[in-house]
Simulated scan of single mutants.
Amino acid sequence: MPNVPAEKLIEVARSLLVAAGASEQEAEVIARYNIGANLVGHDSHGIILIPTYIDRIKVGHIVPQAPWVITQETATTTVIDGNWGFGYAVTDRAMRYTIEKAKTQNVAAATVFRQSHIGRLASYPLLAAKEGMIAMITADSGRSAKAVAPFGGAKARLGTNPISFAIPSNLDGPFVFDMATSAAAAGKINVATARGEQVPTGWLIDAEGKPSTDPRVLKSGGALLPLGGAEGYKGTGLAAIVEIMSGLLTGLGFGVEPSGRHNDGCFIAVFNVAAFRDLVTFKQEVTEFAQYLKATPLAQGFTEVFYPGEVEFNKERDRRKNGVPIEDATWGKIRDLAHGYGLADKLGF
């Protein structure tokens, strides 16, 4: 399993995407966010996805250089049609647009529909936190194939339906919360499959509704379980709310349509902290709150308490210094693509 510098991964992803039809600007945004996921340890949302995106371009499910269109707008709200463009580029622009609205209106929100996979959710609210704002985002795959069984069910009816918040602070690393409402993100199952590993008990059921630790069952009629284990109704409830905010409110709907086209919808909200509290005071209080959490006496078997986002921050510092481990199966696909596009020599394969 090679250990690859992040800068190299970004260049590889960017070059392959341009060769597949993305504009230089789109490829730059996608590569930065995509490899950013690798850096913080979320390999399920990193370079392992680039071959999938290129496959989707080839069959017309992703439209490079698609127009970004506002279909409805008020002073505080925006509805955006991504026209099947790259989700990273569409949502990056949507979040930045919403941040600008919040600077003058204090609270702003947006929905986005008809776009491809948007990757690691935390990437987007972090843009707002850097501007002294609190932001949230939810995402749902609309009427794309589902992966999560509702609590008590044996078949998938929900997406992994993630939700993320970012909060401004004075901490060394960002105070950011990002979770799937399923026991694990579907991408983590793909990583385990690529690495030939089993997954923890409580993540999956097979096609007959029986518990399984074999990641391959997800693509053989199995399903992910909702967050919460024995109290999985909590994960199901959260997933249902995300589906409504990002699927129904955007007009994507629910259920599954036969096209198989991945269709991320998202809901974005941004809150200008200065409209509620003095920003300097608030950021310091968030910092002190995180420190208060970290000072909690430790339970047996634990060595440290982390504030939300700290584990990823520590992982990023390590991987920027020591490189990103990429499983052989993924690196082999990337190498094959580089050869196929005549980029092997340029990219050092």
Score class of each variant (00 low, 15 high):
residue 30 I to S: 09
residue 328 D to C: 03
residue 172 D to F: 02
residue 283 K to V: 03
residue 134 I to S: 00
residue 195 R to Y: 03
residue 76 T to C: 03
residue 238 L to S: 02
residue 285 E to G: 06
residue 126 L to G: 01
residue 220 S to C: 01
residue 100 E to K: 15
residue 242 V to C: 03
residue 212 S to A: 10
residue 73 E to R: 15
residue 127 L to W: 06
residue 15 S to G: 07
residue 136 M to K: 01
residue 87 G to Q: 09
residue 184 A to E: 08
residue 229 G to I: 02
residue 99 I to E: 12
residue 341 Y to I: 03
residue 333 K to E: 09
residue 26 E to Q: 12
residue 236 T to V: 09
residue 145 A to L: 14
residue 42 H to S: 06
residue 92 D to W: 08
residue 215 P to H: 08
residue 227 L to Y: 12
residue 337 L to R: 01
residue 124 Y to E: 06
residue 324 V to C: 11
residue 281 T to F: 09
residue 54 I to R: 13
residue 262 H to S: 05
residue 272 N to F: 01
residue 345 D to S: 12
residue 25 Q to C: 02
residue 133 M to Y: 03
residue 155 K to D: 14
residue 220 S to R: 15
residue 286 V to Y: 12
residue 158 L to P: 06
residue 27 A to P: 02
residue 53 Y to S: 00
residue 280 V to P: 01
residue 248 L to E: 00
residue 248 L to Y: 07
residue 207 A to F: 09
residue 147 A to D: 08
residue 67 P to H: 10
residue 41 G to V: 03
residue 31 A to Y: 13
residue 221 G to E: 05
residue 144 S to T: 09
residue 80 I to V: 14
residue 116 S to W: 13
residue 335 R to M: 02
residue 114 R to C: 01
residue 200 P to H: 14
residue 191 V to K: 10
residue 300 Q to I: 12
residue 15 S to I: 10
residue 264 D to C: 10
residue 43 D to H: 12
residue 128 A to N: 05
residue 132 G to P: 04
residue 33 Y to D: 08
residue 338 A to R: 10
residue 36 G to F: 06
residue 6 A to G: 07
residue 221 G to N: 09
residue 295 A to S: 15
residue 324 V to W: 04
residue 43 D to F: 10
residue 60 G to P: 11
residue 313 F to Y: 15
residue 303 T to K: 13
residue 16 L to R: 13
residue 111 T to E: 00
residue 343 L to K: 13
residue 166 A to H: 08
residue 241 I to C: 05
residue 66 A to I: 08
residue 269 A to V: 14
residue 280 V to N: 10
residue 260 G to R: 15
residue 223 A to I: 08
residue 341 Y to N: 07
residue 97 Y to L: 09
residue 290 A to D: 12
residue 1 M to V: 11
residue 212 S to H: 12
